[in-house]
Design a protein around this nucleic acid. Structure first.
Lengths: 232, 232
DNA sequence: TAGACATTTCGGCCCCGGCCGAACTATTGG
DNA sequence: CCAATAGTTCGGCCGGGGCCGAAATGTCTA
């Protein structure tokens, strides 16, 4: 396949309203069924099917069949990152006192949400700040962090699955991810995902049924205080 | 203006082949005339004019009239960043042993190029490394550097316009920018731009007529040795 | 094995948006 | 002041691609 203009092809895929709606739903990092995505996009199943096939073909999405359902998810964190950069542009654009998109104003979303597969918003930043201020995490290069010895211990005590996170070697271990609501980087990559997993497994946080919003439970609030020495 | 789907609107703008060609030309950080961009996109002037107006309207581009010409440039580094992320996706997509995009393999481009408005490639890294190793630049936070007192002096001796760079306060002063060919951060932001300016003003480097490639002149090579204590 | 449900494939309609020709405005230079 | 050049606006053509209905395929349940 000869690519005439790689940029326009990828952008055009994201440039259709139906496909963009699907991608935004998938930004929660979870896998969704084709019908789910069709509903989110406001199109019929057959139309959605076509869109999804094209995005899989272009390696924007990955598909997995399970029973009579087919689950789609973003193919990689890079896809999520590209979508975030575009949304950042779209946000900056709407400055002239016009009503900003709802997802930008939603206070719950600003408070805590998933960003692909890790925690973002005030809670994500609180965790990240705690880790850096205590010397568990150090900047490494322009877009990564490295886990210090004390950080290693801290994660073990919390039961964070570091081995599992390190096993995925096709992936950055501790990545910096720009938080659109806080305008500073929070922890992402395999470690970020492992931390988020721990929050969900321990019942510190719960995903809302729809959307990227995450609710911090009471025990989660206490854990932030006792384990991270911070509060939100 | 009510925005139905901010993501799709921005992506759709980049998703047209003609507009994408223009944006890719503008990735050199320079301002180009409307006719220039029309030619790059392979469309007539009136078609290009329409495209340009739409991109200005959407705050992707900024326009400046000068005589009977109108110069267009990317509106911000964020736009450049979004384009880069999309191109990264497009590149990753072509993994199956297919020929990588030419701009990834070009040795001159890897050696020295502009990245939006500052120097990148081996030369950009050499300058950055020299500044950090001599203690002129220190990491600050996750994505910035701070200029030390010795760095301040060094810049003054070289005639780098620090005051001018500081005056643009809407902009990060010394930013870390990930170099795609070197895989490490080089200096960008207002200071990075001022350094690049100095290189061009002193005749140490010359922009090639087309594209982002930059040629290091003989005096530039000497300057790297005498002023920066390094070589490439 | 039948019926329900999820998904895909096929075919055809139709509209949005990119394209250009022509005409108009603005700036420069002789 | 006129010709040349850069850029924009307007109007109309036309094709790609998004949409859905119908029907096929696949999978689970009874």
């Amino acid at each position: 396949m000869i690519t005439v203009n790689a940029l326009s092809e990828v952008a055009a895929l994201m440039g259709d309203p139906a496909r963009a709606s699907m991608l935004q739903l998938l930004m929660d990092g979870r896998a969704h069924t084709a019908s789910d995505l069709a509903h989110a996009a406001g199109v019929t199943a057959q139309t959605a099917s076509g869109h999804l096939a094209r995005m899989v073909e272009a390696n924007l999405l990955a598909a997995r069949a399970q029973g009579r359902n087919r689950f789609y998810r973003l193919a990689s964190g890079e896809v999520a990152h590209a979508i975030e950069s575009l949304m950042a542009l779209a946000g900056a654009r709407a400055q002239p006192a016009s009503k900003t998109a709802a997802w930008r104003r939603d206070p719950d979303l600003r408070f805590c949400r998933t960003c692909y597969d890790h925690l973002a918003g005030q809670v994500g930043m609180a965790v990240t700040d705690s880790l850096t201020q205590r010397g568990h995490l150090e900047p490494e290069g322009a877009r990564d962090w490295s886990l210090t010895n004390s950080g290693e211990l801290f994660c073990q005590r919390l039961g964070i699955d570091l081995d599992g996170a390190r096993r995925v070697d096709s992936r950055h271990f501790a990545r910096q991810c720009l938080d659109w609501s806080e305008r500073r980087p929070h922890i992402s990559g395999a470690l970020g995902a492992a931390i988020a997993d721990t929050f969900f497994k321990k019942g510190w946080a719960e995903r809302m049924r729809r959307g990227r919003t995450v609710r911090l439970t009471d025990s989660g609030r206490r854990a932030l205080g006792s384990h991270f020495g911070t509060s939100v």
